[in-house]
Design a protein around this nucleic acid. Structure first.
Length: 399
DNA sequence: GCATATGATTTGGC
DNA sequence: GCCAAATCATATGC
């Protein structure tokens, strides 16, 4: 600290104290003739002036040294010293010299200063937070957009409105936390900036502080705080992403269809077992009846066909049950969705399927009375078989 | 906790 | 684009 070149020009090693006489300003300062008037710090400060030029140089050297070492001292000590220096008779002259030096170094500083472009990462995060409805005006746009995007993909059922409101409330929580933290951050940034500016203004009484220098300092502070802001925004984005995937990912939020919906679909499937390929109209009607989307109906039939085909035995009982139901329903007037492409010449060929089991191919896609009768008979026999077996533990009646 | 059921997605063929 | 088949991921029942 003692070897502040800009101030001395030569440094203390030249044997002339701090060598301030090398500076034009200091030269003027050195020539100041001031009689010893007071001893402001009342101690061995060496601040008193002398008649001797050599003494004056040493005097100024001491002042500078005290300025340089002021940071090493305790707060009270430094305050006292600062006050003493402020009151010193040579302070105005010394200050003007420092201003001159500052002017010169300030020029070079101005050249190094450059306008930094806005951080692209921060821009990305800002855009994302805006799109998600976390940042910007609260209008529910982000959440609504996210929800509608997921809905339009065809994977959302209408009964998911509860999840939507849950999603919105969670997003609102994130938004609230984000804004609280952002406010805290901005407050801290403002407080710290004010503190530093006050400090610089205070220091400007003892050393020259240009407005540009203050601006630069403020910019540095803002940059530092900006990195904290980026972290906050990044964490918020991550939270939104997790929330989104949890609530809006169709796979994660899979819900079983209602019993009634499954019944409707099964009824259709088993009553069109020979050709379980509902037409677009039939799908729409089924979707309407079940309160699900057309694509969900398609998925259901896709899954059902493949699973039925894979394990006919397992589904046989179910098939018979629905066949009976359909038969009963047929008596009262069948109102199941009609399908134009549900014909007997369909491509749903199964080795050992119910159709083959029944031994009679379907006629024009509709189950014949014969089929119904056989199916019902089969079910009765099977139920009887089960009952006899259950009671005794052995198979008493072989069917 | 595990086995099974079930809705959704992916992949490849047509 | 539709379908079969395989697979994934979650729900459900025990």
């Amino acid at each position: 600290m003692l070897q502040q070149q800009p101030l001395t020009g030569n440094g203390p090693s030249n044997g002339r104290g701090l060598g301030v006489s090398g500076h034009p300003g200091m030269h003027a300062l050195n020539s100041v003739h001031q009689p010893s008037q007071h001893r402001s710090d009342g101690g061995e400060s060496g601040l008193e002036g002398t008649e001797n030029g050599h003494e004056t140089r040493r005097d100024i050297g001491d002042i500078l040294q005290q300025i340089m070492t002021i940071t090493d001292q305790s707060l009270d000590e430094a305050q006292a010293k600062k006050h003493a220096l402020n009151c010193h008779r040579m302070k105005p002259a010394l200050f003007s010299v420092l201003c001159e030096i500052k002017e010169k170094t300030g020029l070079s500083m101005r050249n190094t200063q450059e306008e930094e472009p806005q951080d692209p990462q921060l821009v990305r995060l800002d855009n994302m937070l805006l799109a998600e409805g976390v940042a910007g005006p609260e209008k529910g746009g982000g959440a609504a957009a996210a929800v509608s995007a997921a809905t339009s993909s065809g994977g959302m059922s209408p009964d998911s409105s509860l999840e939507h409101s849950d999603y919105k409330s969670k997003l609102s929580q994130i938004r609230s936390i984000y804004h609280t933290e952002l406010e805290k951050y901005e407050q801290a940034c403002t407080e710290f900036t004010t503190h530093v500016m006050n400090l610089l203004r205070e220091q400007s009484r003892t050393r020259p502080v240009t407005p540009r220098e203050i601006e630069r300092m403020v910019a540095i502070i803002h940059r530092k705080f900006s990195s904290i802001q980026t972290q906050l925004k990044q964490s918020t984005c991550e939270a939104v992403m997790i929330l989104r995937s949890r609530f809006l990912d169709a796979r994660r939020k899979r819900r079983n269809f209602s019993k009634q919906a499954t019944e409707v679909l099964n009824e259709y499937f088993y009553s069109h077992l020979s050709n379980p390929y509902p037409s677009e109209e039939a799908k729409e009607e089924l979707a309407k009846q079940c309160g699900i989307t057309v694509s969900q109906v398609s998925n259901w039939f896709g899954n059902k066909r493949i699973r039925y085909k894979k394990n006919i035995g397992k589904f046989q009982e179910e098939a018979n049950l629905y066949a009976m139901k359909t038969a009963l329903g047929a008596r009262q007037g069948d109102d199941s969705p009609h399908t134009p492409n549900s014909t007997g010449s369909g491509s749903f060929s199964l080795s050992g399927s119910a159709d083959l089991f029944l031994g009679v191919p379907p006629v024009n896609g509709e189950q014949s009375a014969y089929q119904m009768g056989v199916q019902v008979l089969y079910t009765i026999i099977k139920l009887l078989h089960t009952c006899v077996k259950d009671e005794s533990g052995d198979i008493l009646l072989s069917v």
